[in-house]
């Protein structure tokens, strides 16, 4: 998966409507849509696409969508 698909697919999966598109610098916990359900979908997204278990402590530590990539050492194309 490349960077653009990562951002586009997360935008779709999390059904974000409050902003038009996500960037690597988007602080996802500030999004209007952010709650326990979107957290669950995000964990599921990372698990399905990158085969990595993102846990709740890691989400706590992350601020931006780039942080998630970094903390899980995911390589985007």
């Amino acid at each position: 998966m490349n960077k653009i698909d990562y951002l586009k697919e997360l935008h779709e999966e999390l059904e974000i409507e409050s902003i038009e598109f996500l960037t690597m610098d988007t602080n996802f916990k500030d999004l209007e849509e952010w709650d326990s359900m979107t957290a669950m979908v995000l964990i599921g997204f990372v698990n399905q696409n990158f085969n990595k278990n993102l846990n709740s402590d890691e989400i706590e530590k992350c601020e931006t969508l780039a942080d998630i990539i970094n903390i899980k050492e995911i390589k985007l194309d």
Binding site: A39, N55, S56
Partner: peptide
Amino acid sequence: MNGAEVFDFTLN
């Protein structure tokens, strides 16, 4: 309930 923690637990 801590939803995210429980979800972690189920996946792991």
